[in-house]
């Protein structure tokens, strides 16, 4: 088999390489070049690519735009909260399911199901939940119990951030749980036995055995949640549409085009490049840090 793969290696990876080249690499390079021009979506403002060259003008414009800076900060806060919450919930689900004997398949399916819903549909469903179920049924003065801070979640910058976190935890925790479950399954049972014989309690076993050996899964889940949180768009559009200063960075890039006449695709493209650099640096840093924590046995 290995001989077969070695022989046909280039042929087998060629379609993927070409697709990557045409669909990712070329648009990325072209996009980066356009970020230095006054590209308007269907034409260059100066008449040609060279005449519309503005150097770092679009980047300066992006960094001097308050809305862009706000969306960067807001996205970072959201990412921080979402990454922590999704990981904790996913890990808790996976530990629970790892310890039950009956109905594991049903629970896995139920926890995974929200992930099947598209971002926009999810946003609209949760808009209804926050505006009607939370506000009028559960937490209103006449509701189950009165909690004003859980009402009108989409009408306040801070509350909306937590509304987004609640929604994305509901959506992603099941998926991340599966990765953690496969990680837990690969930990040999005799290590736990040995630890137990040595007198380690459940908490100690978790921190000294489970967590170190689960680090490969943590690396993957952290990377996925980090990247997904940074580029969240559909749910943001559907839930708040950026009202009450709730534009995440992807929505900000999208709206930069609409906020200007003629549409300023050049600046939007510059924002996208900045966004890419930030996500790439943070993700690479995270992967290298968590990789170092991985242990072999």
């Amino acid at each position: 088999m290995e001989k077969y793969y070695r022989k046909w290696f280039w042929l087998l990876i060629m379609p993927s390489m070409l697709l990557f080249f045409f669909v990712i690499a070329i648009p990325f390079i072209v996009g980066t070049l356009y970020s230095f021009t006054s590209w308007r979506g269907t034409y260059f403002a100066g008449g040609s690519f060279l005449n519309s060259f503005v150097g770092f003008g679009n980047y300066i414009k992006a960094f001097s735009d308050e809305r862009f800076i706000h969306s960067l900060v807001y996205t970072s806060l959201y990412t921080l909260a979402a990454v922590v919450a999704i990981n904790l919930v996913a890990l808790a689900f996976s530990l629970m399911l790892n310890n039950i004997k009956k109905g594991v398949g049903i629970y896995r399916t139920i926890f995974f199901l929200p992930n099947m819903l598209g971002g926009l549909a999810m946003g609209f469903v949760w808009q209804f939940i926050f505006q009607v179920v939370y506000t009028e049924i559960l937490f209103s003065p006449d509701g189950l119990f009165h909690a004003e801070f859980l009402r009108y979640m989409t009408q306040n910058t801070t509350k909306a951030l937590f509304a987004l976190v609640i929604m994305t935890v509901w959506q992603s925790a099941g998926y991340m749980m599966l990765i953690y479950i496969s990680g837990l399954n690969s930990i040999p049972g005799d290590l736990y036995e040995a630890a137990q014989i040595d007198g380690a309690g459940p908490v100690r076993r978790f921190f000294k055995v489970t967590l170190p050996l689960l680090m490969p899964s943590v690396t993957i889940v952290l990377f996925l949640t980090l990247a997904n949180s940074f580029k969240l768009l559909d749910q943001n559009v559907a839930l708040t549409n950026g009202n009450f200063n709730t534009r995440l960075i992807a929505l900000q890039i999208l709206r930069t085009v609409q906020d200007n006449t003629p549409p300023d695709y050049g600046t939007a493209q510059a924002q996208a490049v900045i966004f890419f650099v930030i996500v790439a640096v943070i993700s690479l840093f995270q992967v290298s840090v968590t990789r170092r924590k991985e242990v072999e046995y």
Binding site: W8, W10, L11, M14, P15, L18, L19, F22, V23
Partner: peptide, 16 residues
């Protein structure tokens, strides 16, 4: 092998 590679390249280019 070369023919197969060129065919693959051609198919993907045609698709794109």
């Amino acid at each position: 092998k070369l023919k197969a590679m060129f065919t693959a390249v051609f198919v993907v280019c045609a698709m794109l």
